[in-house]
Amino acid sequence: MIDDKRREVKKKLRTLKGLPTLPPIVAKLTRMIGDETVSAPQIAAVIERDQVLTSKVLRLVNSAFYGFPRRISTVSNAIVLLGFNVIRTLVITASIFEMMQSRDVGLWEHSLGVAAVSGILARDLGLENPEEVATAGLLHDLGKVVERASLVEDYKKIQEKVRNEGVTWREAEQEILHMDHAEIGGYLLNRWNLPERLVEPVASHHELKKARRFKVETAVVQLADILVRARGFGYSGDPWVPEPEEKALKLVGLDEKKLEVLLPQMEVKFYELKFFTEEIREALLEKNPAT
């Protein structure tokens, strides 16, 4: 069956110009780049806290021009290969959100939280590369940024539907876009040649059965998403906390006993992150008191 809406959305995704970043993050990075005492790892640490910049860096290093297709999955590795000058250019040419809404910051906070918790779960499981799983966590809602920035009309409809009908963001997406943010994010990351170990957890984080090769990583991102929503760190579009899939809990081995051990670790992370997110939030308010 031909689905015109899906086709229309995918066409828009293929011609996507560039995703905007939060203005204070770009301002902070621009300041850091102008400061000679700031090192590449320090800049990497800030880039790693933004899903749009992270996806740009990874897209570039995995592009045909650099010659490492589907190989590089972390910002720190990407920076080593791209070099400081390329990163500088990338930051200077980054586009920013013209009109900010406070929920833009909420989504960004949510993504940061999911990145941190994904890292904690991956480390606890003894996965080989926790940094990579954290990156997948950071990017898991990239589809929502795309909706906000490039599917503006549909985004408004989704927003209204969630508000008026009390459905989840994902249900509203499926009704209006005929696909959800997970599919949108996965579609883009795949087009951008990112490694499968990032694409799969993003594309399948709401439906574990879709993941074929990286089930554990996908389960980690799903549970991290749920834990961060339950904790109320950031805002991801609707107020509901979805139910975790049995299979995910089993793959990650997450039960009450384990949660008791991990929750304090997560709280430490949330506490650290707050310093950064509050700094960004304040900078936004200064510039734009209306939000």
């Binding site: 490492f68 290969l81 791209l82």
Partner: peptide
């Protein structure tokens, strides 16, 4: 080889 090249150049 390309990876080593980029790594050397950047370091």
């Amino acid at each position: 080889i390309r990876m080593l090249a980029r790594l050397l150049v950047n370091t």
